[in-house]
Nucleic acid binder design. Sequence first.
DNA 1: GTCCAGGAAGAAA
DNA 2: TTTCTTCATGGA
Length: 305
Amino acid sequence: MLPHIHVMKPTVISVPAIRPFSFAECLRFLDRQLDDCLHVIDGAAVRKVLTIMDRTILTELTGDDEGVHVRILDDGSGSITHADVRNHVRDLFDMDRDIIPFYELLTEHDDLAYMPKIFRGLRMIGIPDLFEALCWSIIGQQINLAFAHRIKRRLVMDYGSSMIHGGAPHYAFPRAEVLADAKPEDLRAMQLSRSKVDYIIGIARAVAEGKVSREVLRHMEDVAERRRSLMELSGVGPWTANYVLMKTMRDPSSIPHGDAGMIKALVDHGMIADRKDKAGIERFFVRFPGWESYTSFYLWRSLYR
DNA sequence: GTCCAGGAAGAAA
DNA sequence: TTTCTTCATGGA
């Protein structure tokens, strides 16, 4: 049996994007001082454990205006192909989308025309793992993001796996099979509400049993059916369903209705005067057909200037 | 003390 | 069907 030998020259995979693309702008969104435990910002690079087809690898992502460079720091079991990594990163940074039509719509809007300039190349950062997206959105319901990240960190550190690099652990979100068997009182101790504990365990079981997955959703007739299906899960309302459709399923037309941050951005931009002006919000989005998700994401981005 | 955070479910009206 | 109430906690 051969001894395990470390590869001296780490593998680097280049992933080109459809321009305009800006890795710096994507990094800016990831680095919001929110202490996200699922990636580590290190200067111009971000280290992140990627879960691809149920296996984990540790990567260091850098990039420029042309794309992303993926350095494999730990290939885990070694069974992930470069093509799989490339496809995963393309999805994570939404790199195959032509966002010029979106920029044209923004430019036509007097109060948002600054966005294609200031945020140029920003892509909607996704959450490829459906279970993570569901849990994260449930954790974040109705509480501020800093608090939500603290709760997520406790959950991930207790139930997630990690890969060591530079003496520091890098975490992957827990598998549904693990959280399906978690003790409710242990989750409750992480300052999740009793309701959210029930939601998360229930969804973990549904995902572990294969009742809910990206594949199951993808095979449905249309977005409306996917939305209905997600909302059948206890704990998933309109906001969460649309958030998951945006971040995981890459639906271009889902709006996170009721989202506190989005509404604040609309008020800040003078699009609506009253936070509960639903009709005003509907009127606003009429100007961005097919780009409602991106518009919501750029509105979120505007909150961190 | 009050109000708001990247809401949802169950009860009440 | 629409409108409260409750849930959890922290910060402004």
